[in-house]
């Protein structure tokens, strides 16, 4: 065997092995994060974390009950703002859109999806915080809701497009009007996928910190209303992690574990639902 061929053989085996190393490295990062967070978070997690308010710096103990409830409030309101807009917009893109205008909407939605979340925060700040003269859960929810719109819109469109054209023709041939066809056949057929997409979208905005920093701000106590500064888990993790107190770091780990588990759980559940749905409906897919 010539030297050149031997070199080629070696290069082949070496480079292919390196690609395997890269893949293992990428996957192991997930387990590294999960493991480290589970180890530190589990030790720090106790009943107080879920039931108590944060203690002032220097004092031991306390929890993040207000941040858990605050996050739930903000994410719920954001979903109420973003999901319907995204859903109906997606219906338009898939079912009514022509060539030109839909293309523009699609393109702009993808661009909006790529706008840094902190910039979305600035937008919510200018349209809610500045006129109302206060930081509020409402402003935070608006920022997250705006982020949810392009995500759900594009996903809804995608899942509606996957519904075979023969379904639409079948319904129209029975004398259904177009909107009845959409409401009674197309959307139900795609519902599982759309719901999955929504879960993934909500999981994504639930972990966002940057757009909340100057919209819902933070709060060491229970928030007294939608127009008041409100604590949230991501912002709480951020502020506790960069603070110089050992006990706050402990709390940050606990909060990090809770947040990560919620987000990963939503992701795994969504994918599980979707894969089950596909095998159950293979009849038409």
């Amino acid at each position: 065997m010539s030297l050149r061929n031997r070199w080629r053989k070696f290069l082949n085996v070496f480079m292919l092995a390196m690609t395997g190393v890269c893949a293992v490295a990428a996957v192991s990062i997930l387990f590294l994060i999960l493991g480290y967070l589970a180890w530190n978070g589990w030790r720090s997690l106790d009943w107080n974390f879920f039931t108590r308010l944060p203690k002032p710096p220097g004092e031991l103990g306390g929890g993040m009950a207000n941040a858990i409830v605050g996050s739930a409030q903000i994410v719920l309101l954001a979903t109420l703002i973003g999901a319907p807009v995204g859903f109906f917009g997606g219906v338009y893109l898939s079912e009514f859109g022509g060539r030109g205008f839909s293309f523009v909407v699609r393109y702009v939605a993808d661009l909006l999806n790529g706008v840094p979340s902190i910039v979305i925060g600035i937008l919510a700040w200018t349209v809610v915080v500045v006129p109302l003269h206060r930081f509020s859960a409402l402003a935070g929810a608006l920022a997250l809701g705006l982020m949810l719109i392009p995500i759900t819109m594009r996903q809804t469109e995608q899942f509606l497009r996957d519904v075979p054209q023969s379904m639409r023709e079948g319904a129209l041939a029975l004398g259904a009007s177009k909107w009845k066809m959409i409401a009674t056949v197309v959307v139900p057929a795609a519902m599982r996928g759309i719901a999955t997409g929504m879960i993934l979208g909500v999981a994504r905005i639930a972990g966002e910190t940057a757009p909340l920093l100057f919209t819902s701000l933070n709060n060491q106590f229970w928030s007294s209303g939608w127009n008041q500064p409100t604590a949230s888990l991501p912002v709480m993790i951020f502020s506790h992690a960069i603070a110089p107190y050992e006990d706050w770091h402990r709390q940050a780990w606990a909060a990090g574990l809770v947040l990560l588990l919620l987000v990963l759980l939503a992701n795994v559940a969504a994918r599980f639902i979707l894969s089950r749905g596909i095998s159950a409906q293979r009849g038409y897919l």
């Binding site: 023709e169 319904a171 129209l172 041939a173 029975l174 259904a176 009007s177 056949v185 057929a189 038409y284």
Partner: peptide
């Protein structure tokens, strides 16, 4: 289309129950 029914080359039942498929036309 209510007066002129159509059956397609590839059967296209809706992802619903048998009864709901048949009832679809009358319902809409």
């Amino acid at each position: 289309r209510r007066r002129i029914g159509m059956v397609f080359q590839k059967s296209n039942p809706f992802p619903k129950s048998i009864a709901d498929n048949v009832a679809y036309g009358p319902r809409v």
